[in-house]
Design a protein around this nucleic acid. Structure first.
Lengths: 146, 146
DNA sequence: GGCATATAGTTAGTTAAACAACTAAATGAA
DNA sequence: TTCATTTAGTTGTTTAACTAACTATATGCC
C-alpha cells in the first residue's frame, strides 16, 4: 500500500529542487559580487576540507555526494586555482590526499559569512521549529534514497 | 537583527540540496531502467507542457526556473528526440510556441507513475503533516530568494 | 514615421554531472 | 607466489547551467 501523499500537482518542486537551486544561485551571486572566483561546487569541496584536510578523493566523494569523475575534475580545477594540492599517500600509492593551500584557508571566513547571509535571507520569516522539521524531513529523504 | 538559526555545521545540506539531488538521481535511474531515453531536465520541461502545451520558451523559463539559453538547448534536444515541435507564433514573430508530439503525450502516464514511486520511496515513514511543513518551508525559501 | 528601448530567442565559452571504459595499485584466496 | 577481485583515481562523451554577446522583432515615446 503506497503512502500516496503526493498529488500530481505537487510533484514538481520536490523533484526539481527549486529551493536549493535558488539558494545556490543566491550564494554564487554573493561570491561573484565579492570578487571570489570560485563556484558553489568548488566551495562545497573546500567546505569539507576546512573541517579537516588531508582527505582522499574518495572521502570527498562520500562527503559531497558526488561521483569520482566529478571529484577528479573539481580537484583539477581547485589545483589550477592554487587552492588545494594533491599529495600522494605514503601508505597506499593509489590514494591522493588533498590539502588546502594558505589561500584556501583565507577564504573560509569570508565565504562562510556569505553562506550564512544567504540562509538568513532564505529562511526569513520561518520559525525555528519549522526549519527543524524541514531539515529532518530532507534528511530522511536522503537516507531513504541513498 | 539576523535570525541566526543556522549553526555552521548545518549549512551544508541546505545549500547543496542533497535531498533533491538524491530524488533526481533515483528518478533518472527509473527512467533508464524503463528504457525511457529522457533526462530529468527534459522531463521537467515536458511536465509543464503536459499541463498545457503551446507555451512560449519564455513561459517555460519561468515555469522551470531556468534561463533562456538552457531552455533553447533543452527544446533543441527535445526536438531532436521528436518529442516537441517549435511553431512560430502568428501574433509575434519573435515567439516560438512549443507543442508536444504524439510520442511525448504517450510518455506522460509512464513517467508520472515513476515520479510518484520515487517520491513514495523518498518520503517513506514521514507523516503527512511533516511533509506539508517541509513543502511550505521550501516554498518560502523559493519566494524569499526568487 | 522614426528611433530608443524592451523582449524573445540563439550562439559561444567555461564549469559541472552522469556514465562507461580505462589504468594502477592493493587485497585475498588457492 | 600467482591470479582474480576490489579499490582509487583518470579520461572521454553527452547533457545541462551560467554568463555574455548577439540578432530579430515589437513597443512606446517624440
Amino acid at each position: 500500500m503506497p503512502n500516496n501523499q503526493f498529488k500530481k500537482g505537487e510533484l514538481y518542486s520536490f523533484i526539481t529542487g527549486k529551493a536549493s537551486t535558488a539558494i545556490a544561485r543566491n550564494l554564487q551571486k554573493k561570491f561573484n559580487t565579492a570578487g571570489l572566483k570560485i563556484t558553489i561546487e568548488q566551495w562545497s569541496v573546500l567546505y569539507h576540507l576546512w573541517k579537516e584536510d588531508g582527505k582522499s578523493q574518495q572521502e570527498l566523494c562520500n562527503a559531497t555526494f558526488r561521483d569520482k569523475p566529478s571529484i577528479t575534475r573539481l580537484v583539477d580545477n581547485l589545483e589550477k586555482l592554487q587552492l588545494v594540492k594533491r599529495v600522494p599517500s605514503g601508505n597506499d600509492r593509489r590514494i591522493n590526499l588533498i590539502y588546502l593551500t594558505k589561500q584556501a584557508q583565507k577564504l573560509q571566513e569570508e565565504t562562510m559569512g556569505l553562506a550564512e547571509a544567504t540562509l538568513n535571507e532564505a529562511l526569513e520569516g520561518v520559525p525555528q521549529d519549522r526549519i527543524e522539521i524541514c531539515k529532518e524531513v530532507l534528511q530522511v529523504v536522503y537516507d531513504n534514497l541513498r
